[in-house]
Write a protein that binds this DNA or RNA. Sequence first.
DNA 1: GCAAAAGTGTTGGCCTTACACCCATGG
DNA 2: CCATGGGTGTAAGGCCAACACTTTTGC
Lengths: 237, 237
Amino acid sequence: MTIESAIDQRVSLAVSTVIFALRPHPDSGLMTLWLPLVRRIREPYEGQWALPGGPLESEDDLASSASHTLQRTTGLEPRYLEQLYAFGNPERSHALADHQPSDRVVSIVYWALVRPDEVARAVDGDNVEWFVADDLPPLAFDHTEIVDYALARLRAKITYTPIAHGFLPPEFTLTELREVHEAVLRTVLDPANFRRQALASKTLIPTGNCLQGTSHRPPALFRFEAGPPTSTTKERR
Amino acid sequence: MTIESAIDQRVSLAVSTVIFALRPHPDSGLMTLWLPLVRRIREPYEGQWALPGGPLESEDDLASSASHTLQRTTGLEPRYLEQLYAFGNPERSHALADHQPSDRVVSIVYWALVRPDEVARAVDGDNVEWFVADDLPPLAFDHTEIVDYALARLRAKITYTPIAHGFLPPEFTLTELREVHEAVLRTVLDPANFRRQALASKTLIPTGNCLQGTSHRPPALFRFEAGPPTSTTKERR
DNA sequence: GCAAAAGTGTTGGCCTTACACCCATGG
DNA sequence: CCATGGGTGTAAGGCCAACACTTTTGC
């Protein structure tokens, strides 16, 4: 009994995705993380909100499956997509309800970043609604735990990798970049020091253009370094 | 088509584990990372070496399944165990051989640390052999890629989390701790600075005891902080 | 010219690195 | 009393946070 000869009929495999976007908070007006949830139309947890996802189609790559979920839910392509974790606790399907334990689900969860302007243009799927990520209703299954973990990963990772571009258009100012960081981390950052640190990271290239139409000095626009083939992969967690 | 209602008969689920231990390198005698592999006794890749693993048993937690693999392969309990990644590329089963593409396998891979002295005492399973982690034969499936990723994760993580204890007995000297880091990272570290940095991390508690029987000043022994319930979890990747 | 945000300079503190030096023990 | 590694001290350099200051635009 060795390796990959695995066939276990009782375990099914799903792929879910935590999709993040930035929008103003309804109360404070400050930029905040939002995510879309889907209302369940079946037991268990019927009527509750849950992460978008679905069964893994057999020809699909795991990441492609997550992309398709994103497409179905928000009509968008991910600007950034990374595997979060595989959740397989046998109890996770029937935490509250007591129904036959035969339907065990292992979920491979991805997290994704999308741009708010794209979200605004796109059409939400059926039973889809957006929520403030730090103020969610009770979720189905263990999805609260999953979202918390995704939030932690996003907040950790933005401090040491250039993923903020997932929230930004191709060209952006350093102030816009800083505002993304501030929104995600819920902090205020020193503009001067942030600028230096961002430029020192060597991931920004000046486009030469400036943003016009401000009531003050026009800020320079930057792009993210294309670099080696844009690895939306698993490296360097 | 929403959430967890997933049942895809063609996809099967396996759990594999990359098991690390430290032993002297056969040539240089320096401490080096080793890992056990299992020789495949079936097609595809019959006769080749592969990561130990097996199908997910339906009552089992994912991490428990990885533990069982470890038990079967080396007869040991893991000192450290963490999920690495879920590999689900549809091509990964039949990279070389061309056989029916119906048997698709998604592998959830864990990595584990075990102590060399325990390894020495334990009995290896059938068809199990230990190899120098940085000098492996060609492996079955995509297991070479998996091991490379596990190595990268171990080397990254040992620099910012106290996982070195996975290679050490309950009580150890700072020199032993440093030697673990040196072996994993393949570097030489300044003893004085390493000591300060280790003590500054607040994860070490002096036992008051000293190691006797050296031909010089007896070094102090330390334990790792038990701290909040020893989370061998997914936090802080 | 004035407000406002872009962008630069400067300082002080902290952490790391390199390396000198003292300490405790077995032979 | 000497060799060996354990353990401490210290000075130089790099990085980062705080904040003063200059620049460039619209009105």
